[in-house]
């Protein structure tokens, strides 16, 4: 059972407090949803949980260990962050191979399977630069799931996808939950959140609270 504990976390950037005294607890086998307008702090919170940025106050713990001091990053983390891409001059398969090589947890077969699971062709010779927006979103999702992560953080996972694509990705996320992963999702798509998530939080002005229905 993996666990993330966020304790009284605040983040200030250039005198602007973008996250305000947030305390949350997450456990594996659940999907947690975050809704809120642009700039409400969802992505910032996700980056902090992923260990990419450090809190100004408070702490993020993974299985009891404080991120940034006892632990650099969450081990076995799958991440999709909005507006962050892969190397545009390489094919999707090559990009994923480069990332998989860092920890050598999986081989080419698993990478190919992940690409297929998101509805892409692993043998597609086009570079990522030539992908459509939907294809870019899918390949980024493939990199997130390919190593069977314990924690999956998905910021707007269904952005730029058509209806079939959205349904395919929802099934994929449900599969990750059933596998026992701890899943965090932020989405503008209310349906994504309501159909997938066990617990839903609302973010506004850097403050996080349970939604009315959760209360």
């Amino acid at each position: 059972m993996n666990r993330i504990d966020i304790e009284n976390v605040s983040k200030t950037i250039r005198n602007n407090e973008v996250l305000k005294d947030i305390s949350l607890h997450f456990e594996s086998g659940h999907i947690y949803g975050f809704v809120g307008r642009n700039g409400s702090g969802k992505t910032m919170l996700f980056r902090m949980i992923a260990g990419l940025i450090k809190p100004t106050r408070g702490s993020v713990r993974y299985n009891g260990k404080v991120l940034g001091t006892e632990l650099d990053i969450i081990p076995r983390l799958g991440l999709v962050i909005e507006n962050v891409g892969l190397y545009p001059e390489f094919t999707g398969l090559r990009n994923l191979k480069m990332l998989a090589k860092i920890n050598s947890l999986i081989g080419e077969q698993e990478i190919r399977e992940a690409i297929t699971r998101v509805g892409l062709d692993p043998d597609d010779r086009r570079t990522v630069r030539k992908y459509s927006l939907g294809m870019k979103q899918r390949i980024v999702l493939a990199q997130a799931i390919m190593e069977r992560p314990d924690v999956l953080i998905l910021d707007e996972p269904t952005n730029a996808l058509d209806e079939d694509g959205v349904e395919q990705i929802r099934d994929l996320i449900r599969g990750e939950k059933e596998r026992g992963a701890l899943v965090l999702i932020a989405s503008h798509n209310r349906e994504d959140i309501s159909t997938l998530c066990d617990v839903i939080y609302s973010m506004q002005g850097g403050v996080c609270s349970l939604t009315e229905e959760e209360k």
Binding site: A50, I73, L79, L86, L99
Partner: peptide, 14 residues
Amino acid sequence: SISGTYYFTRQNDR
């Protein structure tokens, strides 16, 4: 700058 986010969530020793 480019895929650093995905690179460094796998690379635990910068």
